[in-house]
Simulated assay, not measured.
Amino acid sequence: MDYSSILKLKNKTNHFFVPLGVSNHLIRWGVPEENITELGWWDESEYEGLQVAFTPSQHMSGRGLFNGNTTLWGSWVILGQNTRFYTSGDGGYGSHFKEIGQRYGPFDIALIEGAQYDERWRKIHMMPEESLQAREDLGAKNMMLIHWAGFTLAYHGWTEPIERAIRAAEKENVNLIAPQIGETVALKHGEWSYPITYWWNK
């Protein structure tokens, strides 16, 4: 959650769904309280025909010395009439993926974290191969790797996560999509067809 991003989004966004404890920050930054829904793990809410559920993640919150775990963290399920969507947010691999899949799956697409990893950080960041396993646990037909094309936090190369994910997806016959940052990908009748262009090498 980035302060400057929230300032840019607050007048363009009708409603914010946030983990427990996060609404206080948004209110302080000028987001009207009535435009915020705060959820705990497994809480659900309805919004404009969509079912929104806040689901577990294996991570932590806080960036400073004194604000560790003062807010909740997690992942999100969004269920529409035609599309079932999941995004993992940040987090390590764990049994929660199977439970989410059992409760809400199968999913049409899952956006799953798989970068900024290190052997010392396995509890909070996944290796790309673990991301593919999470997709299977969730019962997702299609997958997009996230958390790899932005900030550099780990010692691995910038393109290593997506390249490892592509190799694992080819081996397991998984439909992995890797659109360029900001690019739109259309879902047609539950099938995502998007060729990997390796734009990061250009």
Rank of each mutant, 00 (worst) to 15 (best):
N35I: 04
N35Q: 13
G40Y: 01
W41N: 11
D43A: 04
D43Y: 02
E44K: 14
E44D: 07
S45E: 10
S45Y: 07
E46D: 14
E46Y: 05
Y47W: 14
Y47M: 08
Y47I: 04
E48C: 07
E48W: 01
E48Y: 06
G49H: 07
L50T: 01
L50R: 11
L50E: 06
Q51P: 02
V52C: 06
V52E: 07
T55C: 13
T55D: 02
T55F: 03
P56L: 00
P56S: 00
Q58R: 15
Q58L: 15
H59R: 03
H59F: 15
H59P: 00
M60K: 14
S61A: 09
S61L: 03
S61W: 00
G62C: 08
G62V: 08
G64T: 04
G68E: 11
N69M: 06
N69T: 00
N69D: 15
N69R: 13
T71S: 09
W73I: 15
W73H: 15
W73V: 15
G74H: 05
W76E: 12
V77C: 13
V77K: 04
V77F: 04
V77S: 01
I78A: 08
L79E: 15
Q81C: 06
N82P: 00
T83W: 11
F85R: 09
F85K: 06
T87H: 01
S88T: 05
S88A: 11
G89D: 07
G89H: 05
G92C: 10
Y93F: 15
S95W: 14
S95Y: 12
S95K: 15
S95F: 13
H96D: 05
H96E: 10
H96P: 11
H96A: 00
H96S: 07
F97H: 10
F97S: 08
K98T: 14
G101Y: 03
G105T: 09
F107G: 02
F107Y: 01
I109A: 04
A110E: 04
A110L: 11
A110I: 07
A110S: 14
L111N: 01
I112S: 00
I112Y: 05
E113G: 08
E113T: 05
E113M: 11
A115F: 01
A115G: 13
Q116L: 12
Y117K: 07
D118T: 10
D118I: 05
D118R: 13
D118L: 11
E119G: 01
R120A: 13
W121I: 07
W121V: 08
R122H: 13
K123V: 10
K123L: 13
I124G: 09
H125P: 01
M126S: 12
M127P: 00
M127D: 14
E129K: 12
E129D: 14
E130W: 09
L132P: 00
L132D: 00
A134M: 03
R135N: 07
R135K: 15
R135Y: 01
R135D: 02
